[in-house]
Design a protein around this nucleic acid. Structure first.
Lengths: 223, 223
DNA sequence: CATAGTTTCATACAAGCGTTTGAATTGCAA
DNA sequence: TTGCAATTCAAACGCTTGTATGAAACTATG
């Protein structure tokens, strides 16, 4: 039975380096140096660089999806099969945001790795990523149960916008900090989650009438 | 005086290739092959690969910012120095969205290049990108004039969310299409703009009270 | 201890990268 | 046309990349 120690140090080092510097700037030699193992160990244990990346991504992807679904199930159980819309959205964006932001001196490498993966979309990851659609579909279904009267298209857009705000907040928190000169507190994760959830709920529950060419001012500058 | 023809074909080919395939997968040899020029021409005319990328980015960046500011000025002029908040947001997200989405058989390479740049953040671009903060500050100031009563932090978050929704819609339109099985119409650019503007306006004009721990349900699942 | 299987190691390899070189070619002024 | 600078070109450079190799070291069973 293998000790798995080399395997594990490679996975840890790779995840941390990819999280910190992105996929493009990290070579196998960087990884093995950080892991304190021999260069050939990567190909011996994983077959190739791409398979190493794929294993990292699959592992973390399953974990994140599990955390989100757990929150969703809990919310639906609490409501007898139908969760409140804000609870659904909180289950969608909460796990990732909590993982990637927050006052911890160094955030979880796992979460930052996933952000990188979602940003840089390197080939081995892109191949796996299509399964995420099925995962999101479960949230779309829950939202439909929660807001049975809503237009389905609006639900998709609301889901999309919620993910967009969460994602961009993680991705470009630096810009927001600079722009606001520090007045936007990115360590207040729960506050950020509630902000995103509140906006998404508003987007999802606004009146039907203004689904297009809403305000008079809007229609004026159509160009 | 140089004919500039080689220079121009390199710029065009590079922009198109980077837009299509990203920075990581495009080599100088790909570019010169597409441009029909010699390999050494890049270094002769631009000095280095990084300087070529930087020139592309600076050019397009200035153009986009100019388009946004033009719309902003027009909106402010129309309102006698104080634009409606929705007009400001439309000026912010409109130019980019119109450039990157839409029914055109092939979208503008320039716009898709800018999206790549904003996604992949290769070093020569990252160095330039900090100027964007100053550009966004003008929109923050306009928003403050438009909504003088609002908390400044809320304005920054609203600006941030508006850009997040626009950006993610461009970036990951494929996912939304798949998720909604085509029912979200990504060719209806003006509809998308109005959707984003409407949500952003709601985010910016919601009542002060719920800036944190808003709904009772929200407070319950704080974790 | 001996031996077979697993894991590590130093080293090499082919391929691709951005860049450089120096000679050919071009374009234009005198 | 001659002459000179600007431009183009084929070829090569040095370097880094992921991967492969075969020997050495380790581990555990008989």
């Amino acid at each position: 039975m293998p000790s798995d120690q080399t395997r594990t140090s490679i996975l840890d080092a790779a995840e941390r380096l990819y999280a910190d510097r992105g996929f493009a700037d990290v070579t196998l030699r960087d990884i093995v140096a950080a892991a304190g193992v021999n260069l050939a160990a990567v190909n011996y244990h994983f077959g190739s660089k791409d398979e190493l990346i794929a294993e990292l991504f699959v592992t973390r992807s399953l974990a994140t999806n599990r955390a989100r679904l757990n929150e969703l199930k809990a919310a639906e159980a609490e409501g007898g099969g139908r969760a409140e819309i804000d609870a659904i959205l909180r289950a969608l964006v909460g796990p990732t945001l909590r993982g990637c932001l927050g006052p911890g001196n160094e955030r979880s490498a796992a979460a930052r790795f996933m952000i990188r993966a979602s940003i840089e979309a390197v080939p081995p990851i892109r191949r796996i990523k299509n399964r995420e659609i099925d995962h999101l579909r479960k949230f779309a279904a829950a939202m439909q149960r929660s807001l049975p009267g809503r237009n389905q298209v609006d639900l998709y857009w609301g889901l999309h916008f919620a993910l967009a705000m969460a994602h961009q907040t993680i991705r470009d928190s630096e810009r927001l900090t600079k722009l606001s000169e520090g007045s936007c507190d990115l360590d207040d994760v729960q506050g950020i989650i509630e902000r995103i959830v509140a906006v998404s709920v508003m987007a999802l529950t606004r009146r039907e009438a203004d689904s297009r060419a809403s305000e008079p001012v809007a229609a004026r500058r159509g160009r």
